[in-house]
Simulated assay, not measured.
Amino acid sequence: MPPIEDAIESVLLPTDGSEGALAGATRGLDLAVAAGADVHVLSVVDTSDVEGVSAILEDDIDEARAAIETEAETAVETVARTVEERDPDLEVTTTIDRGKPFRVIESYVDTAGIDVVAMGTKGRAGLERVVLGSVTENVLRTVPVPVLAVPPGAGDAELTAETTENVLLPTDGSEGAVAAVDWGVTFADAFDAMLHTIYSADTSRFTGDAEPGEILTKLEREGEDALETVRDRARAAGVSVTGTVASGPPARAILNYADENEIDLLAIGTHGRSGVERHLLGSVTENVVRNADVPVLCVPMRGD
């Protein structure tokens, strides 16, 4: 994986003006600053709810639509101003579009050649913390580039070389997990942070006549092999690395490790051993994103 300035040349910050969206944009801006990347700020006007109510008079629909567009303009201007105040040298492109938000974001990623998307996990819907905002969830399921999912509580925790000391990279040895390795190493290198990697030996997914001890021993060997892959790549990049084989359900092991080791950033593949298609998140990743207290970089498996 190349240095962060080569890996990330453009960052997309979608916003709906909510506090959750601003948290995502702020942490995404951290990545843009670290990489010297161009910043794209996008707000999507979704008027389908207003236009779907036939009882509303046409004048009322026009007024409601205008109010939504004004909110979108304000949301974009707020983020653009934040970017300029943080680093005036960054190039900023602002866009307001119409349509289904996640579809517009997906199209914008492809058209503009975006490298990373940064979004809050809580938007205007005001959903509980353990439930992803519907737009963010759909973006995670569909875009072909890494998405930095930022929980509401991470809005004030900067991702900089001064503040980011520990990056966690879970692995299960699958192709989906390997896709995230280079990104985890890149961020640890950019922030001069310790890279932690963890493999969870989960015997609960095995049934049959095999002895639990034999299964655990086999999984631990697989885990050490998976960790060694991460160690090799980290050492080649000059990144300090530590690896752990844990036990139990992977999502719980990852979240517990993050809490106990003061992890500042997680990098995880969106497809693991379950072999789900690109448009579905792996269950482990989904559970981690839903419950993490720190930003989670979700890396889709490469098309090749």
Rank of each mutant, 00 (worst) to 15 (best):
G176E: 05
A161Q: 15
T82Y: 01
S54P: 07
E137Y: 14
R98T: 07
T93V: 14
P2Q: 13
V296K: 00
M301G: 06
T244R: 15
T111A: 15
S174L: 03
S48T: 14
I215C: 04
D202G: 05
G113P: 10
G155W: 00
D232G: 01
T93I: 12
D259A: 14
A55R: 11
A157K: 13
E222D: 15
G123R: 02
R205F: 12
K122W: 06
G303M: 12
L159Q: 00
A21Q: 01
V239F: 09
D115A: 03
P3K: 09
T82D: 13
T203E: 13
T95V: 14
S54C: 08
T26Y: 02
E165I: 00
F206V: 11
R221K: 15
S10E: 05
E211I: 06
E286D: 13
E106A: 15
T160N: 04
A67P: 06
T203R: 13
G238M: 11
A210S: 15
V11Y: 05
T15F: 00
T207M: 08
L127M: 12
T285R: 02
R290S: 09
A193T: 08
A35I: 11
D59L: 11
A32T: 01
M119S: 05
D60N: 12
D202Q: 06
E51L: 12
R141L: 06
V276Q: 15
L90T: 04
T74M: 08
E260G: 06
G208H: 04
S43I: 03
T163P: 04
D59R: 14
D110T: 09
P250L: 02
L148D: 00
T270Y: 02
P170H: 07
I61T: 11
V145S: 03
D6H: 12
D62W: 05
V284D: 09
V130M: 05
T160A: 13
E69Y: 11
V284H: 06
I215G: 00
S10M: 04
L168N: 01
V50P: 00
D87I: 06
G153Q: 15
A55G: 03
A34I: 07
A23I: 00
V135A: 08
D46N: 13
N256E: 15
E224F: 07
G248W: 11
V39I: 11
A125V: 10
E286M: 04
D264F: 07
N287W: 03
E214T: 10
L265Y: 04
L227G: 04
G275E: 04
L132H: 07
I8C: 05
D172I: 07
N261P: 08
N256Y: 04
R278A: 08
A161E: 15
D38I: 05
A64L: 15
A157R: 12
T74N: 11
V131N: 02
I215V: 14
E128I: 10
D189R: 13
S174A: 08
A179C: 02
T203D: 07
G36V: 06
V116L: 10
G17D: 02
D293R: 10
G24K: 02
A161K: 11
E9W: 05
I68E: 12
P146V: 08
T164E: 12
A25F: 01
T70K: 13
T163S: 15
L42S: 03
N166K: 01
D89M: 08
D192G: 12
E71A: 09
R86S: 02
